[in-house]
Amino acid sequence: MKVFSNTETFNYSWEEVSTANWRKYCPWNQKSTHVVAVDTLSRTVDPETGILRTERLITCRQSAPDWLKKMIGGNIEDSHVFETSYVDPRSKTVTMVSSNLTWNNLISVQETVVYRPFNEHQTRFEQTAQITALCGGWQRIKSSIEDTLVKRFHENAVKGKEGFEAVLAMSRRVFAEEREREKMMMLQSQAANIRLAA
């Protein structure tokens, strides 16, 4: 088993980050192009705790090394990930756990991501992934499969941060514009009322 871990700080409030996280893989993010689809499978709010639980299916398309393609055969480029996330509004924590649905008889990838407030204006992102090659056979092969995936995780993490920064910036802009528009509409209707009264 190999472990990949990574920590980042985003200069946005937890509320902004947890909202933008739902559209991390939208066209505003031009870096994480390996994610081709995100589907929501179920979504519930626990009436007792207020925790929002969401199941998503993430579809990835990414080229694989030739030697791995030869070993496994078939369409290795498309893979699916099952993600369950828990938003706890009381402790202000988003926890996302993911596992691979595809090739899980050969490789197990278990990822946990947590977003929590660092302070009022900053949010911490903590990511850990456990990668285990399950196939029997030589340790050397298992080890190189694990190394390849750890490397891939690292590359995607760097791109993921850049892409998410773009989504966060766009989200802030769009929300500000929306607020501005609402304010303008309110002022216009107030002005109209004043004119009517005069």
Partner: peptide, 9 residues
């Protein structure tokens, strides 16, 4: 927003 794996959805 992101795409669905099923274009019809």
């Amino acid at each position: 927003m992101s795409q669905s794996l099923a274009p019809e959805c």
